[in-house]
């Protein structure tokens, strides 16, 4: 280990040090990056390609590419943002191979401004997370986000789930900043509308 923190357990070593160690051939450091981020990358890939088998391939390809290109990683962004970008590209490539270029366009505008106007606005349970068991909640949120059209799903996933900034999301998807913002708002409003029937005060937990 070439880390400057030799006494620290791997799990506590900052990302930048792990990357530096991995670059000079420390496999344990790279494995720690895998441990740290692979669960998120797998979830992201599932949300894009829609099934676990393809998502596992996306995950594997993304980390292998990152490993092979570690030398080129400039450190302008975090390793995490970088691997997210690689994984999104891999996932989109796979979708395009399956469905064709046109169907997987991120430029498509699906609905009009009218859809922005909320239909059902009701009071929700003060803490919706208390309403459902953990697994139930996970399944409910996964099903709901899966029902969004790809351009909205992807922007929401990167911004609100993976925590990328607007600028990072725009760069990862090749979109303008206003496009990211307008898609994010539409995605949030659509999800809110879909979750309303589960989280409203009078709702009986499924």
């Amino acid at each position: 280990m070439t880390s400057q923190s030799p006494s620290l357990p791997l799990t506590l070593i900052p990302e930048a040090e792990l990357v530096a160690s991995a670059r000079v051939g420390d496999l344990r450091a790279f494995e720690e990056l895998v441990r740290r981020y692979a669960p998120r990358i797998l979830r992201l890939a599932i949300r894009v390609v829609g099934n676990e088998a393809d998502a596992e391939d996306v995950l594997q390809e993304a980390f292998l590419k990152a490993y092979a290109k570690l030398e080129q990683f400039q450190g302008h962004s975090s390793f995490y943002t970088w691997i997210v970008r690689i994984a999104v590209n891999e996932a989109l490539m796979r979708l395009r191979r399956r469905h064709g270029e046109r169907e997987v366009s991120l430029d498509q505008e699906i609905d009009t401004g009218e859809d922005l106007l909320p239909r059902e606005v009701e009071d929700w349970h003060p803490d919706p997370e208390q309403q459902f068991a953990r697994q139930e909640m996970h399944d409910l949120l996964s099903r709901t986000i899966a029902s969004l059209a790809l351009p909205y799903r992807l922007v929401f996933q990167l911004r609100d789930v993976e925590g990328l900034s607007t600028e990072e999301t725009a760069e990862a998807l090749g979109l303008s900043i206003p496009a990211v913002k307008s898609r994010l708002l539409r995605a949030r409003l659509q999800l809110r509308e879909k979750l309303n029937r589960f989280f409203r005060r009078e709702a009986n937990p499924a």
Binding site: R35, A38, P39, R40, L42, R43, P118, V121, E122, D123, W124, P128, E129, M137, H138, L141, I145, F156, D160, V161, G163, R188, L189, L191, R192, L195, N196, F199
Partner: peptide, 20 residues
């Protein structure tokens, strides 16, 4: 609307990914 949008973002933000 504001409150339920805020909660929509929060419930997704708080989700931990399943183990690999």
């Amino acid at each position: 609307l504001l409150e339920t949008c805020r909660k929509t973002v929060a419930v997704y933000e708080h989700q931990e990914p399943p183990e690999l």
